[in-house]
Simulated assay, not measured.
Amino acid sequence: MKKTTFLGAILLVLGLALPAVPANAAGEGAEAHQQSWSFSGPFGTYDRNQLRRGFLIYKDVCSSCHGLEYISFRNLSEPGGPEYSEDAVRALAAEYTIEDPNAEGGEREGVPSDRWPDPFPNEQIARDANGGALPPDLSLMAKARTISQDFPWWALNYFTAYQEGGADYIYNLLTRYEEPPADVELEPGQYYNDFYGIIAMGLPLADGMIPYEDGNTPETLHQYSLDVSAFLQWTADPHMVSRKQMGFRVLLFLVGFAILMYLVKRRLWRDAH
């Protein structure tokens, strides 16, 4: 009887957990090409140089259509991120004009505390400029999307601090453009993405499109996609590194505290028998 109850409890837990399987927006069972990320795992951290390259791609390409609503200029100088100097962030912010009803003329020069400006004044103008499609804000995209995984791999994510689901989603979206199959008809302004399906955004990146200052990093679609995906993972979770460090300290404290309590218990009860 106890064995039957135990098995029933296991099946109930699995039944409740199964609906939580991550699924990508394509929803057609598209297989994702998973990448190796520096920030994956419980001890993973962001690669500062990769974040800087990713920011360059966002700034030069993505920002013409997509905003970063939840990111301020000053976030770019915070520990665990791209870590630009305060002077560099101040100079970057000054390149943008910020709408401010309290400023003379209703506009002023940007400062580090300002949020990243939206590329369009309002939603209607954004749709008009993109054939009716509304470009999504990218600041939380790596949290809002993920890839499909089969059981039991998705269950292991809870124990391995899996972080790259959103980054893998973005990477696959950027690298899987191709000619549509014969049975797929595209309307004007539509494109085919093997991972996503029919999409209103054309291929945004291509080999050799953006020069990297270091001269060593490959200037390829693959590398561009890795870098901007990592950057968008950071915008969605800018405090990941400090959170992992705090979690590790807490675990060390709990282990040490448990050992101390065990030793105290043994000392208190050593004469009880």
Rank of each mutant, 00 (worst) to 15 (best):
R48T: 15
E99A: 14
G106Q: 06
T97W: 00
Y58C: 03
G106H: 01
I71H: 00
R53P: 05
N75Q: 15
G132K: 00
L68I: 11
F73E: 12
L92Q: 09
C62T: 04
L134S: 03
S64R: 10
D118N: 12
F73Q: 06
N75I: 01
N130I: 14
R74G: 10
C65E: 01
E99K: 09
E104T: 14
E95H: 11
G80V: 07
N49H: 14
P121H: 12
A94N: 05
Y58N: 03
R127S: 12
W116V: 13
R115W: 14
G110D: 00
R108E: 06
G132Q: 01
R53D: 06
Y70D: 15
N122T: 05
I71C: 08
V111N: 09
Y84N: 02
S64Q: 14
G54R: 13
E69R: 10
F55S: 08
A94Y: 07
D118A: 12
N130T: 15
F120M: 06
Y96K: 07
L134M: 11
H66G: 01
G131E: 00
I125W: 07
R52L: 11
T97Q: 14
E109I: 13
I98L: 04
I125Q: 14
D128C: 00
E99T: 13
P135M: 06
Q124R: 11
Q50Y: 06
A91Y: 05
C62R: 01
D118F: 09
I71P: 01
